[in-house]
Design a protein around this nucleic acid. Sequence first.
DNA 1: CTAGAGGCCTGCCCGC
DNA 2: TGCGGGCAGGCCTCTA
Length: 269
Amino acid sequence: MPELPEVEVSRLGITPLTQGQTVNKIVIRQTQLRWPVPDTIHQAVGQPILSIERRAKYLLLRLATGTILVHLGMSGSLRVLAANTPFSKHDHVDLHFDNQTLLRYNDPRRFGCWLWFDKNVTIPLLDKLGPEPLSDEFSAEYMLTLASKRKVSVKQFIMQNAVVVGVGNIYASESLYNAHIHPLRQAHTLSKQEWVELVNQIKIVLQSAITQGGTTLNDFKQPNGKPGYFAQQLNVYGKANAPCPSCGDAIQSKVIGQRNTFWCDRCQQ
DNA sequence: CTAGAGGCCTGCCCGC
DNA sequence: TGCGGGCAGGCCTCTA
């Protein structure tokens, strides 16, 4: 479910409701997420949430003595609810606040994580991440240089977090389609001008997806409970054999690097 | 170093 | 109606 736009939508949704609130209890019903939820996370109790940041697809709840790091995995979502709201299936973690609300984490597949890192300790998961896609650091010059000797497909290349973060499977296919670049091209074969176009389309696709509240395919919900609306603007993702919106040829699909990929053979070179 | 594959989980959809 | 198989938005980790 969540790619970068969905994580950012979640951050924007929960921030006004949780920033400044003091944690008074943490309830963990399922510790077995991607990694076990550590006992040290209870150090957050008694402290206010100072801010909620996002790095790649990680949410960072900043407190005075450390950081709660949350990843939504494939199927995680966050809601802010009244403290007495009954929990349901797959509601694994609740952060209770002094004002009788809670931040609730639901994650059927449990590929997400909740971790605690003491202040002044480096967070290994954030160590090797490439630039944020919506920052100026993510540029055509940067990609041209980095890709110079890379033989992997451009589609896999842009999905590598060490290259650039936050480009997940949906938006990789969409960006390549919009940039008229074939997903199976080796990364090093793209020209400067093609990187200009691809970088630009990645930024446009991600930013507009954020504006639309993310992409809901099955079950993604914004923190307000509403679905995202970007799915209505997808051109190729999930549309194998449907007509290309531009030329009408059948959309192709193939598993590339173990992820399904969609493109138009005529429009993408 | 790079590239490719496995694995973590549950839910859903499809075909029989 | 039930059941098995395949697939799904991420990404760390292992192998070659």
